[in-house]
């Protein structure tokens, strides 16, 4: 989904989870707060992504993120909610391995500790 028609070009060195986190922060900040899914969903997504990015996530949380995306998309009052879903949902869809890597680190850390 392109939303406003803007394109962001990133090279392979970019941490895609961090990029999704940054964008979901943007949407959380932009949400007007009128409708429930957008107001609550954008914040929840940001909180989860923040956990994952900081190495505190779990694979269950990624699945939860996907379900939150489903609960939000096409159910908000305006298109901002749908747009907020796009970076998170598509990053999981196309770069699931990046998420898994962050989570694996954690899981291996736990083993070594």
């Amino acid at each position: 989904m392109l939303g406003s028609g803007a394109l962001i070009v990133m090279d392979h060195t970019v941490n895609i989870v961090e990029a999704a986190l940054r964008m979901s922060y943007f949407y959380m900040h932009e949400s007007c707060g009128k409708c429930t899914p957008c107001r609550e969903g954008t914040r929840w997504m940001y909180q989860i992504l923040n956990d994952i990015q900081n190495g505190k996530g779990s694979s269950k949380q990624v699945e939860k993120l996907e379900d939150i995306c489903d609960n939000m998309s096409f159910k908000c009052f305006c298109a901002l909610g749908d747009a907020a879903v796009a970076p998170v949902a598509s990053s999981i869809m196309h770069f699931r391995s990046d998420y898994d890597e962050l989570i694996k680190n954690l899981e291996s850390d736990e083993v070594s500790a």
Partner: peptide, 8 residues
Amino acid sequence: GVLEFTLL
């Protein structure tokens, strides 16, 4: 889904 958001 909506109720989960509402109660969040």
